[in-house]
Simulated scan of single mutants.
Amino acid sequence: MSIVRFDALKAVPWKNGLGITREIVVEPPGATMDDFLWRVSIADVDTASPFSVFAGIDRTIVLLEGDGFTMTLDGEHQHALTTACEPFAFAGEARVDVRLAGGATRDFNLMVRRGHASGRIDVVRGPVTMDGSNIALLHVARGEATIDGEACAQGDTAIAPRSVTLRDNATALLIRIA
């Protein structure tokens, strides 16, 4: 188990250069945007910029902070990502335009290469203690947690946790990869 602290994440430009992202982990280690198997990151959205296109990638996005935004996929389907901690899955090759609901937002992203792996995000709210043996990553979205005996704050991510205790009013994103 290892913990990635939010404060240690480096902000880098999006693939399309119109925003910033903080990569938490990529598999295999050192993979690029063109050859990762799966990738987890946190992005800041502060303008109505289109998302980067990732052909062959299944994406799941979760609003962490802010008022959110409305996504228009391929000019047709709209989805309001305005409720925190409610995952929304979509195809990475979709053309996604964004209309902010208010100010800047922060979201959590899981990207998985279709046909090579699958992934999902489950949301768990505290107080709860659980076995983490079938969890690839656990992201503390709200509040505090103790993971394998180590204190974790909002924004921290545990890779391959074994035991997890979420405190009162804490919310975690459980990422499962197959």
Rank of each mutant, 00 (worst) to 15 (best):
S2Y: 01
A11M: 01
P13V: 05
W14H: 12
L18P: 02
G19V: 02
G19H: 04
R22A: 09
E23T: 11
V25Q: 05
V26L: 14
V26K: 11
P28C: 13
P28T: 12
P29H: 07
P29I: 06
G30P: 01
T32A: 13
M33N: 08
D34R: 06
D34S: 13
V40P: 05
S41W: 09
I42C: 04
D44W: 00
D44I: 09
S52A: 13
S52I: 13
V53F: 04
G56F: 06
I57Y: 01
D58M: 09
L63V: 11
L64Q: 10
L64C: 12
G68N: 06
F69V: 07
T70P: 06
T70Y: 05
M71W: 01
M71R: 06
T72I: 10
T72V: 12
L73I: 06
H77D: 07
H77L: 11
Q78P: 02
L81V: 12
T82I: 06
T83Y: 00
T83S: 05
C85F: 10
P87H: 03
A91L: 08
V98N: 00
R99A: 14
A101E: 07
G102M: 11
G103V: 00
A104I: 05
D107M: 03
N109W: 01
V112D: 05
R113V: 08
R114P: 08
S118H: 12
G119S: 03
I121W: 04
V123G: 02
V123E: 02
V124G: 07
V124W: 08
V124R: 15
D131C: 14
I135S: 13
H139Y: 13
R142I: 05
R142Q: 12
E144K: 14
T146E: 11
I147W: 06
G149D: 08
A151C: 06
C152L: 13
C152I: 02
A153Y: 03
Q154G: 14
A158P: 01
I159F: 05
V164S: 08
T171W: 00
T171H: 01
L173H: 06
I175P: 04
A178S: 14
